[in-house]
């Protein structure tokens, strides 16, 4: 069971300052709209926290041509189905904040992004991902044993940024006392490839904890530091570079996103 509440709170409170600007080619009014600034929760998803961005820019785009709003940074369309913190770790640069994100209402990149028909789509994909994680950890037993009311509380806790409400349910998903995780739900993200998610147990057959370094050497050997400790890659979890000697079980319990997956971003610096 995750006990370091301070760590959990610190992770939960992670915020990213973002500056939204409309793509200049999509402007239909004479006056250029002001950029729009928001402090976005790392834990959340773009469609849940960008209503104000839409309101701010929509009036300056011609209605007939307007399509679903989408975001882009440095020519990379941002996938709404991944948590905001993951998108920033993968595409942003912590030395350049606020994060300059371009807003689009035209030319939706059908090949690269999936459409988001509304908040229900975010909720159903999010809850499904939590089930997937629970399937990896406990064969789905914890999610199945919960009432619909608790699923709802869990989702609303995330949506409304309520730590206590969320963790009241999440601590059951993270509990290990009676039933250790069968495998660690994780996803390794790289900018130019699909994410990697292959089964890894929390411990070896000798009951030794499996470390972050073990996972990186196995899955992304070129990103692992050399013997002298050098690497051109950063291994980011929740915006920080955790010691590679950290056990995966600890990271999973304390540094996972609300979807219960440990998201690891590998970036070349």
């Amino acid at each position: 069971m995750a006990e370091d509440t301070e760590v959990l709170r610190e992770v939960w409170n992670g915020r990213i300052p973002v500056c939204f600007r409309l793509d200049s080619h999509e402007l239909s009014s004479i006056e250029e709209p002001e950029p729009y600034f928001l402090l976005l929760p790392r834990m959340s998803y773009l469609p849940l926290v960008t209503d104000k961005v839409k309101l701010h820019f929509q009036k300056t785009v011609s209605q007939e041509e307007g399509d679903e709003m989408w975001f882009e940074y440095d020519d990379q369309p941002l996938k709404w189905q991944h948590p905001i913190g993951v998108l920033f770790d993968l595409h942003g640069n912590p030395d350049q904040v606020p994060w300059n994100v371009t807003v689009h209402f035209k030319r939706f990149p059908e090949d690269e992004l999936i459409r988001c028909p509304g908040e229900e789509a975010v909720e159903s994909l999010f809850m499904s991902t939590v089930k997937e994680a629970d399937f990896l950890k406990h064969r789905g037993a914890v999610m199945n044993a919960m009432h619909a009311k608790e699923h709802r509380q869990f989702w609303l806790g995330l949506k409304n940024d309520r730590f206590d409400q969320f963790w009241e349910v999440n601590r059951r998903l993270m509990a290990v006392s009676s039933d250790p995780f069968r495998s660690i739900p994780y996803r390794i993200h790289q900018t130019d490839k699909p994410f990697i998610q292959e089964p890894v147990k929390p411990t070896t057959t000798e009951d030794e904890p499996i470390l972050l370094s073990d996972l990186i050497r196995e899955k992304i050997p070129h990103a692992a530091p050399t013997e002298s400790g050098e690497s051109t890659y950063q291994i980011l979890v929740q915006g920080i570079q955790p010691p590679l000697t950290t056990p995966l079980q600890y990271l999973s319990e304390h540094f996972s996103h609300p979807d219960n997956f440990l998201h690891i971003a590998i970036v070349c610096r």
Partner: peptide, 19 residues
């Protein structure tokens, strides 16, 4: 998958098979 959850549309067949 596993009669339990809907995979993310960008999840690969490779990951699903391995897991």
């Amino acid at each position: 998958v596993s009669q339990a959850f809907v995979p993310s549309p960008d999840q690969t067949v490779s990951n699903l098979y391995e897991c």
